[in-house]
């Protein structure tokens, strides 16, 4: 699943480690999500959305367009 996590993180000038600390996950997890190798769970997706003050759909794109 594509996402804008890397862009959003860069806009705030956060390192992967800093974002990982804010989300209470490892840097490995942040890297895996940014590179679309791992899709976060719904609770983590909500946590990410709240952190950036955006909706989940504004961060993650599952490729399905609404009609």
């Amino acid at each position: 699943m594509k996402n804008r996590l890397k862009v959003l993180r860069a806009e705030r000038n956060w390192s992967q480690a800093e974002l990982a600390g804010r989300l209470d996950v490892s840097r490995q997890a942040v890297n895996a999500i940014e590179t679309s190798k791992y899709d976060p769970s719904l609770p983590l997706a909500f946590k990410i959305a709240r952190l950036f003050d955006l909706s989940i759909e504004e961060i993650f794109d599952d490729g399905e367009r609404r009609g």
């Binding site: 390192s15 992967q16 480690a17 800093e18 990982a20 600390g21 209470d24 996950v25 490892s26 840097r27």
Partner: peptide, 12 residues
């Protein structure tokens, strides 16, 4: 690299 470990990484 990338800074000190997060608390979770520390426990890990």
């Amino acid at each position: 690299v990338g800074g000190p470990p997060t608390p979770r990484e520390g426990r890990y």
